[in-house]
Nucleic acid binder design. Structure first.
Lengths: 176, 176
DNA sequence: ACTCCATGGTTCGGTGATTGAACTTAGGGG
DNA sequence: CCCCTAAGTTCAATCACCGAACCATGGAGT
Protein backbone atom coordinates (compact mmCIF):
# COMPACT_ATOMS: atom_id res chain seq x y z
CA UNK A 1 0.00 0.00 0.00
CA UNK A 2 2.08 2.86 1.05
CA UNK A 3 4.63 4.25 3.39
CA UNK A 4 4.58 7.98 2.98
CA UNK A 5 2.02 7.54 0.26
CA UNK A 6 -1.21 7.44 2.17
CA UNK A 7 -4.84 8.20 1.58
CA UNK A 8 -4.06 11.65 2.87
CA UNK A 9 -7.04 13.66 1.78
CA UNK A 10 -9.50 11.31 3.42
CA UNK A 11 -10.80 12.48 6.76
CA UNK A 12 -12.22 9.06 7.23
CA UNK A 13 -11.87 6.27 9.72
CA UNK A 14 -11.91 3.59 7.04
CA UNK A 15 -9.07 5.22 5.13
CA UNK A 16 -6.96 5.32 8.28
CA UNK A 17 -7.70 1.69 9.02
CA UNK A 18 -6.70 0.73 5.49
CA UNK A 19 -3.44 2.66 5.69
CA UNK A 20 -2.46 0.26 8.43
CA UNK A 21 -4.17 -3.06 7.74
CA UNK A 22 -5.06 -2.59 4.06
CA UNK A 23 -1.66 -3.45 2.68
CA UNK A 24 -1.11 -6.69 0.87
CA UNK A 25 -0.71 -9.67 3.25
CA UNK A 26 -1.42 -7.67 6.41
CA UNK A 27 -4.89 -9.03 7.14
CA UNK A 28 -3.73 -12.56 6.43
CA UNK A 29 -0.99 -12.14 9.01
CA UNK A 30 -3.60 -10.93 11.47
CA UNK A 31 -5.91 -13.81 10.65
CA UNK A 32 -3.07 -16.22 11.32
CA UNK A 33 -2.48 -14.49 14.64
CA UNK A 34 -6.12 -15.25 15.51
CA UNK A 35 -5.49 -18.85 14.49
CA UNK A 36 -2.57 -18.97 16.89
CA UNK A 37 0.16 -18.81 14.24
CA UNK A 38 2.52 -16.33 15.84
CA UNK A 39 6.07 -17.21 14.81
CA UNK A 40 8.03 -15.88 11.92
CA UNK A 41 8.89 -19.27 10.49
CA UNK A 42 5.37 -20.60 10.92
CA UNK A 43 3.96 -17.58 9.14
CA UNK A 44 6.40 -17.98 6.26
CA UNK A 45 5.48 -21.65 5.98
CA UNK A 46 1.74 -21.18 6.26
CA UNK A 47 1.20 -18.04 4.20
CA UNK A 48 3.96 -18.50 1.67
CA UNK A 49 4.71 -14.83 2.10
CA UNK A 50 8.03 -13.30 1.01
CA UNK A 51 10.20 -13.02 4.09
CA UNK A 52 11.03 -9.37 3.49
CA UNK A 53 7.34 -8.48 3.32
CA UNK A 54 6.60 -10.40 6.50
CA UNK A 55 9.38 -8.57 8.33
CA UNK A 56 7.99 -5.26 7.16
CA UNK A 57 4.41 -6.08 8.18
CA UNK A 58 5.37 -7.40 11.60
CA UNK A 59 7.37 -4.26 12.28
CA UNK A 60 4.60 -1.97 11.11
CA UNK A 61 1.92 -3.79 13.10
CA UNK A 62 4.07 -3.93 16.19
CA UNK A 63 4.88 -0.24 15.98
CA UNK A 64 1.19 0.54 15.58
CA UNK A 65 0.23 -1.51 18.61
CA UNK A 66 -1.73 -4.21 16.80
CA UNK A 67 0.80 -6.91 17.61
CA UNK A 68 3.15 -7.29 20.52
CA UNK A 69 6.49 -9.00 20.30
CA UNK A 70 6.94 -11.37 23.17
CA UNK A 71 9.77 -13.64 24.27
CA UNK A 72 8.55 -17.20 24.57
CA UNK A 73 11.84 -18.93 25.32
CA UNK A 74 15.24 -17.70 26.41
CA UNK A 75 17.72 -20.15 25.08
CA UNK A 76 17.99 -19.70 22.26
CA UNK A 77 16.04 -16.44 22.47
CA UNK A 78 12.87 -16.68 20.44
CA UNK A 79 10.04 -14.19 20.03
CA UNK A 80 6.48 -14.52 18.87
CA UNK A 81 4.00 -11.90 17.76
CA UNK A 82 0.68 -11.88 19.58
CA UNK A 83 -2.37 -9.71 19.10
CA UNK A 84 -2.87 -6.84 21.53
CA UNK A 85 -6.33 -5.79 22.66
CA UNK A 86 -6.34 -3.36 19.73
CA UNK A 87 -5.49 -6.22 17.43
CA UNK A 88 -8.13 -8.52 18.89
CA UNK A 89 -10.72 -5.84 18.19
CA UNK A 90 -10.12 -6.49 14.51
CA UNK A 91 -11.98 -9.78 14.90
CA UNK A 92 -15.35 -8.47 13.67
CA UNK A 93 -13.71 -7.09 10.53
CA UNK A 94 -11.77 -10.27 9.85
CA UNK A 95 -14.84 -12.38 10.48
CA UNK A 96 -17.07 -10.24 8.25
CA UNK A 97 -14.62 -10.35 5.36
CA UNK A 98 -14.02 -14.09 5.73
CA UNK A 99 -17.71 -14.76 5.77
CA UNK A 100 -18.27 -12.65 2.69
CA UNK A 101 -15.49 -14.45 0.86
CA UNK A 102 -16.87 -17.81 1.93
CA UNK A 103 -20.35 -16.99 0.72
CA UNK A 104 -19.56 -15.28 -2.55
CA UNK A 105 -16.13 -16.33 -3.73
CA UNK A 106 -15.72 -19.93 -2.62
CA UNK A 107 -17.31 -22.40 -5.04
CA UNK A 108 -17.42 -25.12 -2.37
CA UNK A 109 -18.72 -22.83 0.33
CA UNK A 110 -16.80 -21.48 3.31
CA UNK A 111 -13.62 -23.34 4.18
CA UNK A 112 -13.99 -23.05 7.93
CA UNK A 113 -16.84 -23.00 10.45
CA UNK A 114 -16.86 -20.64 13.42
CA UNK A 115 -18.84 -21.53 16.51
CA UNK A 116 -19.47 -20.17 19.97
CA UNK A 117 -17.25 -22.45 22.02
CA UNK A 118 -19.56 -22.53 25.07
CA UNK A 119 -22.57 -23.84 23.20
CA UNK A 120 -21.31 -25.05 19.84
CA UNK A 121 -23.67 -22.83 17.84
CA UNK A 122 -22.50 -21.39 14.52
CA UNK A 123 -21.91 -17.64 14.66
CA UNK A 124 -24.47 -15.44 12.96
CA UNK A 125 -23.61 -12.95 10.19
CA UNK A 126 -22.68 -10.27 12.70
CA UNK A 127 -20.39 -12.59 14.66
CA UNK A 128 -22.82 -13.09 17.54
CA UNK A 129 -24.22 -16.29 18.98
CA UNK A 130 -27.84 -16.87 17.93
CA UNK A 131 -28.49 -19.13 20.91
CA UNK A 132 -26.89 -17.15 23.71
CA UNK A 133 -27.88 -13.79 22.33
CA UNK A 134 -26.36 -10.52 23.52
CA UNK A 135 -24.10 -9.45 20.76
CA UNK A 136 -20.63 -10.20 19.59
CA UNK A 137 -18.80 -13.31 20.76
CA UNK A 138 -15.27 -12.27 21.75
CA UNK A 139 -12.60 -14.11 19.76
CA UNK A 140 -11.37 -15.96 22.86
CA UNK A 141 -14.72 -17.76 22.93
CA UNK A 142 -14.78 -18.67 19.24
CA UNK A 143 -13.94 -22.17 18.07
CA UNK A 144 -13.13 -22.93 14.46
CA UNK A 145 -12.55 -26.00 12.33
CA UNK A 146 -12.03 -26.75 8.66
CA UNK A 147 -15.12 -27.78 6.74
CA UNK A 148 -13.28 -30.01 4.30
CA UNK A 149 -9.97 -31.87 4.26
CA UNK A 150 -6.83 -29.79 3.97
CA UNK A 151 -5.54 -29.51 0.45
CA UNK A 152 -2.98 -32.12 -0.54
CA UNK A 153 -0.40 -29.58 -1.60
CA UNK A 154 -0.39 -27.81 1.75
CA UNK A 155 1.07 -30.35 4.08
CA UNK A 156 3.35 -28.12 6.13
CA UNK A 157 3.47 -28.41 9.88
CA UNK A 158 1.18 -25.45 10.43
CA UNK A 159 -1.55 -26.55 8.06
CA UNK A 160 -1.59 -29.92 9.72
CA UNK A 161 -1.92 -28.34 13.15
CA UNK A 162 -4.87 -26.32 11.87
CA UNK A 163 -6.62 -29.32 10.36
CA UNK A 164 -8.47 -30.13 13.58
CA UNK A 165 -10.87 -28.08 15.69
CA UNK A 166 -9.22 -25.27 17.62
CA UNK A 167 -9.92 -22.17 19.66
CA UNK A 168 -9.01 -18.73 18.33
CA UNK A 169 -6.00 -17.00 19.91
CA UNK A 170 -4.61 -20.20 21.37
CA UNK A 171 -0.95 -20.48 20.30
CA UNK A 172 -0.30 -23.41 17.98
CA UNK A 173 2.32 -24.92 20.24
CA UNK A 174 1.57 -24.35 23.88
CA UNK A 175 4.94 -23.83 25.51
CA UNK A 176 5.29 -25.51 28.87
CA UNK B 1 -2.77 -6.15 -5.09
CA UNK B 2 -2.45 -8.48 -7.91
CA UNK B 3 -3.75 -9.67 -11.21
CA UNK B 4 -2.30 -13.07 -11.89
CA UNK B 5 -0.33 -12.75 -8.68
CA UNK B 6 -2.76 -13.92 -6.08
CA UNK B 7 -2.67 -15.53 -2.68
CA UNK B 8 -2.78 -18.82 -4.50
CA UNK B 9 -1.76 -21.30 -1.86
CA UNK B 10 -4.42 -20.13 0.55
CA UNK B 11 -7.46 -22.34 0.72
CA UNK B 12 -9.13 -19.63 2.65
CA UNK B 13 -12.18 -17.48 2.32
CA UNK B 14 -10.41 -14.40 3.61
CA UNK B 15 -7.64 -14.73 1.06
CA UNK B 16 -10.17 -14.93 -1.73
CA UNK B 17 -12.01 -11.90 -0.44
CA UNK B 18 -8.78 -9.94 -0.27
CA UNK B 19 -7.81 -10.88 -3.80
CA UNK B 20 -10.88 -8.97 -4.89
CA UNK B 21 -11.47 -6.19 -2.37
CA UNK B 22 -8.06 -6.03 -0.72
CA UNK B 23 -6.35 -3.99 -3.38
CA UNK B 24 -5.46 -0.42 -2.72
CA UNK B 25 -8.46 1.95 -3.04
CA UNK B 26 -11.00 -0.82 -3.61
CA UNK B 27 -12.71 -0.68 -0.22
CA UNK B 28 -12.81 3.11 -0.37
CA UNK B 29 -14.61 2.90 -3.71
CA UNK B 30 -17.09 0.50 -2.12
CA UNK B 31 -17.53 2.74 0.90
CA UNK B 32 -18.30 5.62 -1.43
CA UNK B 33 -20.84 3.43 -3.19
CA UNK B 34 -22.54 2.93 0.19
CA UNK B 35 -22.46 6.71 0.63
CA UNK B 36 -24.22 7.10 -2.71
CA UNK B 37 -21.18 8.28 -4.64
CA UNK B 38 -21.56 6.26 -7.81
CA UNK B 39 -20.19 8.29 -10.71
CA UNK B 40 -16.71 8.22 -12.12
CA UNK B 41 -16.16 11.94 -11.83
CA UNK B 42 -17.59 12.12 -8.33
CA UNK B 43 -15.32 9.31 -7.22
CA UNK B 44 -12.29 11.01 -8.71
CA UNK B 45 -13.22 14.26 -6.97
CA UNK B 46 -14.03 12.71 -3.62
CA UNK B 47 -11.32 10.09 -3.28
CA UNK B 48 -8.55 11.85 -5.14
CA UNK B 49 -7.78 8.54 -6.78
CA UNK B 50 -5.73 8.27 -9.97
CA UNK B 51 -8.15 7.91 -12.85
CA UNK B 52 -6.44 4.85 -14.28
CA UNK B 53 -6.67 3.07 -10.96
CA UNK B 54 -10.33 3.93 -10.62
CA UNK B 55 -11.06 2.58 -14.09
CA UNK B 56 -9.29 -0.63 -13.22
CA UNK B 57 -11.14 -1.07 -9.91
CA UNK B 58 -14.54 -0.33 -11.40
CA UNK B 59 -13.94 -2.87 -14.15
CA UNK B 60 -12.73 -5.53 -11.74
CA UNK B 61 -15.59 -5.02 -9.30
CA UNK B 62 -18.16 -4.98 -12.09
CA UNK B 63 -16.77 -8.16 -13.60
CA UNK B 64 -16.86 -9.83 -10.19
CA UNK B 65 -20.46 -8.85 -9.59
CA UNK B 66 -19.87 -6.46 -6.70
CA UNK B 67 -20.91 -3.41 -8.70
CA UNK B 68 -23.33 -3.07 -11.54
CA UNK B 69 -22.97 -0.49 -14.27
CA UNK B 70 -26.29 1.18 -14.88
CA UNK B 71 -27.43 3.83 -17.34
CA UNK B 72 -28.97 6.73 -15.48
CA UNK B 73 -29.56 9.09 -18.37
CA UNK B 74 -29.65 8.65 -22.13
CA UNK B 75 -28.66 11.91 -23.59
CA UNK B 76 -25.83 12.24 -23.24
CA UNK B 77 -25.41 8.61 -22.20
CA UNK B 78 -24.17 8.41 -18.63
CA UNK B 79 -23.57 5.40 -16.43
CA UNK B 80 -23.20 4.97 -12.70
CA UNK B 81 -21.86 2.09 -10.66
CA UNK B 82 -24.19 0.76 -7.99
CA UNK B 83 -23.70 -2.02 -5.46
CA UNK B 84 -25.29 -5.38 -6.24
CA UNK B 85 -26.70 -7.57 -3.48
CA UNK B 86 -23.27 -9.19 -3.26
CA UNK B 87 -21.74 -5.75 -2.87
CA UNK B 88 -24.25 -4.66 -0.24
CA UNK B 89 -23.32 -7.71 1.79
CA UNK B 90 -19.93 -6.13 2.29
CA UNK B 91 -21.54 -3.65 4.68
CA UNK B 92 -20.65 -5.55 7.87
CA UNK B 93 -17.01 -5.69 6.80
CA UNK B 94 -16.89 -2.02 5.84
CA UNK B 95 -18.63 -1.04 9.05
CA UNK B 96 -16.36 -3.16 11.23
CA UNK B 97 -13.20 -1.76 9.68
CA UNK B 98 -14.48 1.83 9.84
CA UNK B 99 -15.40 1.41 13.45
CA UNK B 100 -12.01 -0.03 14.29
CA UNK B 101 -10.25 2.84 12.52
CA UNK B 102 -12.46 5.34 14.30
CA UNK B 103 -11.73 3.89 17.71
CA UNK B 104 -8.03 3.22 17.40
CA UNK B 105 -6.57 5.43 14.72
CA UNK B 106 -8.53 8.67 14.83
CA UNK B 107 -7.25 11.06 17.48
CA UNK B 108 -10.53 12.99 17.51
CA UNK B 109 -12.66 9.86 17.54
CA UNK B 110 -14.76 8.51 14.69
CA UNK B 111 -15.50 10.94 11.89
CA UNK B 112 -19.04 9.74 11.23
CA UNK B 113 -21.91 8.35 13.26
CA UNK B 114 -24.06 5.48 12.02
CA UNK B 115 -27.58 5.08 13.32
CA UNK B 116 -30.58 2.87 12.76
CA UNK B 117 -32.73 5.18 10.64
CA UNK B 118 -36.07 3.96 12.08
CA UNK B 119 -35.22 4.77 15.68
CA UNK B 120 -32.15 6.98 15.58
CA UNK B 121 -30.10 4.70 17.84
CA UNK B 122 -26.36 4.39 17.25
CA UNK B 123 -25.35 1.03 15.84
CA UNK B 124 -23.60 -1.38 18.20
CA UNK B 125 -20.14 -2.84 17.53
CA UNK B 126 -21.60 -5.65 15.44
CA UNK B 127 -23.66 -3.29 13.28
CA UNK B 128 -26.95 -4.11 14.97
CA UNK B 129 -29.46 -1.81 16.64
CA UNK B 130 -29.31 -2.05 20.44
CA UNK B 131 -32.87 -0.75 20.79
CA UNK B 132 -34.68 -2.80 18.15
CA UNK B 133 -32.60 -5.91 18.71
CA UNK B 134 -32.57 -8.81 16.24
CA UNK B 135 -29.23 -8.59 14.57
CA UNK B 136 -27.70 -6.68 11.75
CA UNK B 137 -29.32 -3.51 10.43
CA UNK B 138 -29.31 -3.73 6.62
CA UNK B 139 -27.44 -0.83 4.99
CA UNK B 140 -30.65 0.55 3.47
CA UNK B 141 -31.82 1.29 7.01
CA UNK B 142 -28.62 2.93 8.18
CA UNK B 143 -28.33 6.71 8.44
CA UNK B 144 -24.98 8.43 8.75
CA UNK B 145 -23.73 11.92 9.43
CA UNK B 146 -20.38 13.58 10.00
CA UNK B 147 -19.42 14.12 13.63
CA UNK B 148 -17.37 17.24 12.98
CA UNK B 149 -17.27 19.91 10.30
CA UNK B 150 -15.84 18.90 6.96
CA UNK B 151 -12.20 19.77 6.54
CA UNK B 152 -11.50 23.14 4.97
CA UNK B 153 -9.35 21.71 2.24
CA UNK B 154 -12.01 19.31 0.99
CA UNK B 155 -14.64 21.57 -0.41
CA UNK B 156 -15.54 19.68 -3.55
CA UNK B 157 -19.15 19.17 -4.54
CA UNK B 158 -19.27 15.63 -3.19
CA UNK B 159 -17.82 16.42 0.22
CA UNK B 160 -20.34 19.20 0.58
CA UNK B 161 -23.20 16.87 -0.31
CA UNK B 162 -21.97 14.45 2.35
CA UNK B 163 -21.69 17.11 5.03
CA UNK B 164 -25.30 16.65 6.15
CA UNK B 165 -27.16 13.61 7.43
CA UNK B 166 -27.89 10.99 4.77
CA UNK B 167 -29.07 7.45 4.25
CA UNK B 168 -26.70 4.77 2.97
CA UNK B 169 -27.16 3.63 -0.63
CA UNK B 170 -29.19 6.69 -1.63
CA UNK B 171 -27.56 8.20 -4.74
CA UNK B 172 -26.08 11.62 -4.16
CA UNK B 173 -28.13 13.25 -6.88
CA UNK B 174 -31.55 11.70 -7.16
CA UNK B 175 -32.32 11.76 -10.86
CA UNK B 176 -35.86 12.77 -11.71
C1' DA C 1 -20.96 24.99 -38.77
C1' DC C 2 -17.77 25.95 -35.24
C1' DT C 3 -16.31 26.25 -30.71
C1' DC C 4 -16.60 25.24 -25.85
C1' DC C 5 -17.64 22.28 -22.04
C1' DA C 6 -18.53 18.14 -19.05
C1' DT C 7 -18.21 13.28 -18.47
C1' DG C 8 -15.68 9.27 -18.68
C1' DG C 9 -12.29 7.40 -19.82
C1' DT C 10 -6.97 5.81 -21.96
C1' DT C 11 -1.92 6.44 -22.46
C1' DC C 12 2.58 7.02 -20.77
C1' DG C 13 7.05 7.82 -18.38
C1' DG C 14 8.74 7.74 -13.67
C1' DT C 15 8.59 6.01 -9.00
C1' DG C 16 7.89 2.89 -5.42
C1' DA C 17 6.35 -1.70 -3.61
C1' DT C 18 6.60 -6.77 -4.07
C1' DT C 19 8.88 -10.91 -5.29
C1' DG C 20 12.00 -15.03 -4.89
C1' DA C 21 16.41 -16.39 -4.11
C1' DA C 22 20.50 -15.99 -1.82
C1' DC C 23 22.95 -14.55 2.10
C1' DT C 24 23.58 -13.42 7.26
C1' DT C 25 23.42 -13.66 12.23
C1' DA C 26 22.85 -15.93 16.64
C1' DG C 27 22.55 -19.70 19.36
C1' DG C 28 22.56 -24.67 20.30
C1' DG C 29 23.93 -29.91 19.66
C1' DG C 30 26.69 -33.85 18.36
C1' DC D 1 34.42 -28.10 14.29
C1' DC D 2 30.51 -28.74 11.54
C1' DC D 3 25.76 -28.67 10.97
C1' DC D 4 21.07 -27.16 12.15
C1' DT D 5 17.13 -23.97 13.07
C1' DA D 6 14.91 -19.54 13.67
C1' DA D 7 14.71 -15.08 12.25
C1' DG D 8 15.94 -11.96 9.64
C1' DT D 9 18.46 -8.77 5.66
C1' DT D 10 20.02 -7.83 0.88
C1' DC D 11 19.44 -7.46 -3.95
C1' DA D 12 18.07 -7.38 -8.84
C1' DA D 13 13.96 -7.92 -11.52
C1' DT D 14 9.20 -7.22 -11.93
C1' DC D 15 4.81 -5.29 -11.15
C1' DA D 16 1.54 -1.88 -9.56
C1' DC D 17 0.67 2.87 -8.75
C1' DC D 18 1.17 7.68 -9.62
C1' DG D 19 0.09 12.19 -11.83
C1' DA D 20 -0.28 14.60 -15.87
C1' DA D 21 -1.57 14.84 -20.31
C1' DC D 22 -4.33 13.36 -23.92
C1' DC D 23 -8.71 11.48 -26.35
C1' DA D 24 -13.76 10.57 -27.41
C1' DT D 25 -18.53 11.50 -27.13
C1' DG D 26 -22.51 14.19 -26.92
C1' DG D 27 -24.77 18.36 -26.04
C1' DA D 28 -25.12 23.80 -25.63
C1' DG D 29 -24.14 28.52 -27.22
C1' DT D 30 -23.48 31.71 -31.10
Amino acid sequence: MALGKDYEGQDCALARALELVGERWTLLVIRDAFYGVTRYSDLVAHLDIPRAVLSDRLQTLTAAGVLERRRYQDSPPRDEYVLTEMGRELWPAVYALSRWGGRHLSPDGPSRAYTHAECGTRLDPAGGCPRCGNGLVPPEDVAFRPMRPTREDRSDQVSRALSGPRRLLRPLAEVD
